[in-house]
Nucleic acid binder design. Structure first.
Lengths: 247, 247
DNA sequence: CACGGAAGTTGAACGTGTTCGACATCGCGG
DNA sequence: CCGCGATGTCGAACACGTTCAACTTCCGTG
């Protein structure tokens, strides 16, 4: 399908768009054989996504290439989109690994943040072609793949934790009030960078690197400035608004 | 289909995702009969989208309801997604109309911006259910529906012009350097508001209203502050970065 | 060893968006 | 009035994502 047509027209209720949340995420393999098949299908799928792009890769193609029936792929992954969630997870793990190397050697806030952001793009880089075409599914609010969805919570929390570590592990002096909220804001900024990267058509996505290199000093300076008398009220108001807006 | 599988596997070139840009946007009717049919199909489609949601509305359903063949719909609109672009256009026109009323009576920057932002959400409000599910197609960089795409240029320029009018028609004193760039930044902020709105699950999307009411004074204050000595360099750097990053 | 249920696997079948060659209707020049 | 090309219309056919009832394989228990 593509757009999740509610399968049984149950839900006598109304014309709501209803999607996802309760949706089965595919089976967690219980045996070694299952685990192996699952991994085979996943590897094949991600390889084909990178080789041919997301849209040009069909579930039939994945199944044939992996040597299984199409129904078998659906036994482990409840939809084509769910294969992407696995991609997210893998990406997140690699991002944190790369970031750890940076955080181990840098102590100042700016270089730490700069390194972590670049590490994220480094991780994503090989998949730029195909990432661009599926990021749209992540943009749908009702999709379990949305970075704000409950299903993405583990990945999101891990990512926010990474930015918390980036901040608290640094020598930066930060308004204590801001200190609690900043990691989430940095994560949001990272989302913005990724959004820019997805749209970035410059060779090697060089402009995204420019964005990071230019934005980090600005963020750094702004964080320092936030303790200034003239800016104090602004800072307070921003934080207040954010707290109000959080779901 | 849904995900634009390059129809003929031509393009011997490579595995690029290739999409859109050259894609036919459907026929511009040349006769009165054509114009009438086109409008009938469009009205039917948008009505069904609002009634049933985007995914639950099928091209066959639209055709049947409009009393035409499915192939006929494709004569005027080259894909289901292209029906959405029409929705954008209609929305933009209504937004500008509502905004004009506000701009006619307000002279200060903050209330003007506040009014224009609320007008945008007012316009979108009746379509929240269905807007949420298709905004994802707008998020795909290669999609003609992306707000950054060449195809969206007219709508985008009109929207930016609206924010320019919001600013220049006001009594606000703005750093002349900022004055040129600010409208585009305000448009970006509007996009951010819409993005929040799409994800906003609060009753009546009340939180989006809170966001607008809270963010506008902040923006207003920040714009004023930008002329301050301490912030001058930051302002310069931000503007420099933006100019570098623009495609 | 036999059996029974859980786990894994299959592929035909459904409804979808989209395409395309054939047909219908129109308006205009002869 | 007759053609004839452009414009509009049609619906069967295609490939896709997804479902599901039937089947097979596996393993622990009696």
């Amino acid at each position: 399908m593509t757009d999740r047509p509610v399968p049984p027209p149950a839900d006598a209720g109304g014309a709501t768009e209803q999607t996802g949340v309760g949706g089965t995420a595919g089976a967690e393999p219980a045996t070694a054989r299952g685990e192996q098949t699952r991994q085979l299908i996943l590897d094949t799928a991600l390889r084909l996504f990178r080789e041919r792009g997301y849209a040009q890769t069909t579930m039939r193609g994945i199944a044939k290439e992996a040597g299984v029936a199409v129904g078998n792929a659906y036994y482990y992954f409840s939809s084509k989109e769910h294969l992407i969630q696995e991609f997210y997870a893998e990406t997140g793990v690699e991002h944190r690994a790369r970031a750890a190397a940076v955080l181990a050697r840098e102590t100042e806030f700016a270089p730490r943040l700069r390194g972590v952001l670049h590490a994220g793009i480094d991780t994503l880089a090989p998949s730029h072609e195909f990432a661009a075409t599926f990021f749209k599914t992540a943009a749908e609010p009702t999709s379990p793949l949305s970075p704000f969805s409950p299903e993405s919570s583990p990945t999101r929390q891990a990512s926010i934790a990474l930015f918390r570590e980036t901040l608290t592990g640094s020598t930066a002096k930060v308004d204590p009030e801001l200190r609690d909220e900043l990691p989430e804001l940095l994560w949001l900024a990272y989302l913005g960078v990724v959004l820019y990267w997805v749209h970035d058509r410059s060779p090697g996505q060089a402009k995204t690197r420019t964005l990071i290199n230019g934005a980090v000093p600005l963020i750094d300076r702004l964080v320092g400035l936030s303790r200034l008398r003239v800016l104090r009220p602004v800072t307070r108001d921003v934080l207040g608004l954010i707290r109000t807006l959080r779901p």
